[in-house]
Design a protein around this nucleic acid. Structure first.
Lengths: 197, 197
DNA sequence: TTATTAATACCGACTGGTCGGTTTGTTCTC
DNA sequence: GAGAACAAACCGACCAGTCGGTATTAATAA
């Protein structure tokens, strides 16, 4: 099963269309025909490249999670002060998701699908755990450097930090005009870091 | 347009079946026929009581949000120490959602639907804002009582607190076995309160 | 108490249309 | 010319919602 350059192009077209439609209307409410139409591609082409709608979803989720991981890794280079890293993350958190086109809605879609379909769940847990571990290690370093109090449990704190981030994104997506979310995010991370010192 | 006791019973049967199915499989993946079957009710009965599938969803969301509000109000009576109230909330947060049958998955469903359908959004914003206001007032009281530092912005802090709660529920639903979520919740609220003092 | 009326509650077959996926055949590309 | 890439017609299952008609229940009159 080789791949011509033309093939890769249509694959990308399908993936991009699907990303947009899934995040706007959800997995179930998005039809394969709709995806094909937006990608200027026939159904035959679709099922030549993907074995099913779910298959496309899994591929989509995989590539998206990879992209996110790359972006997050790139944030923490050049700085050694751990609290500063978290504050940097907070400062650009909006931008990170903007850079990924459709941002949080699609993550929410991944989340709900993973809660329902075991195969989706299995593909999502590992990146999720890796992400937590990355945070955990960062916090551990912070403790070692004396920036955080020694009684802190890195793993637990990592989950709390993740919670704040996810909760803020959830609210910001739901009610974008409701608050200055950049300010709320900055303040939230600030409160948490203050509690961790 | 009156209602016989028989009518109320079938209404409840439909609502309960729908609650279960919506939270398990989602709104789109749940068919009206499925709901009827589970409720031992015909399609005719369904459309006698609800004008559409969406209508049922809105009714369902309304009653659920009312129930949640009642539960949260009932938590804060009998105590005057504001930080203690939050710690109590954290302690019973798991129980609160257990008491509401299907807990967080259905809330997630409300959230995603509200992000997509304007009418759902409109019905959800008001309770959401009321909830935030309730938290905000609680924090304001805490500041007045000297439990929190004066530089704290009550509204912003309320949103941060909500974020932690939602983020924790999100993670706990996704990965129930991944951690001792009761402990993580306790610790998370603890960190936040420490930062607020 | 009983018969009548009317409104509520309900049934299930049916409809127009959409869905994910298949099939058959054509067109590119190497 | 061989296999990859694509197009479009097609299929059966399923969907939300409708409709003509039937029970059930409550109010009213005899």
């Amino acid at each position: 099963m080789t791949l011509t350059s033309r093939g890769v192009e249509t694959q990308n077209a399908i993936i991009n269309s699907a990303l947009e439609l899934f995040s706007k209307n959800g997995y179930d409410a998005t039809s394969v025909a709709e995806i094909c139409s937006k990608a200027n591609v026939s159904k035959g082409a679709f099922y030549h490249h993907f074995s099913s709608k779910q298959d496309l979803f899994l591929v989509l989720m995989g590539t998206w999670l990879n992209d996110v991981e790359g972006l997050f890794q790139s944030v923490s280079i050049g700085t050694e002060d751990v609290p500063q890293i978290f504050e940097n993350m907070a400062a650009i958190s909006g931008g990170i998701f903007d850079a990924l086109d459709d941002g949080f809605p699609i993550l929410l879609e991944f989340w709900t699908q993973a809660n329902r379909q075991p195969d989706v769940w299995q593909r999502a847990v590992e990146p999720y755990h890796q992400f937590l571990e990355y945070f955990s290690e960062l916090i551990q370093t912070g403790i070692y450097e004396g920036a955080f109090k020694k009684s802190l449990d890195p793993e637990v704190s990592a989950r709390v930090l993740t919670s704040v981030a996810m909760g803020l994104l959830l609210q910001a997506t739901f009610d974008p005009q409701g608050a200055d979310w950049q300010e709320v995010t900055r303040s939230g991370i600030g409160l948490l870091l203050a509690g961790m010192r």
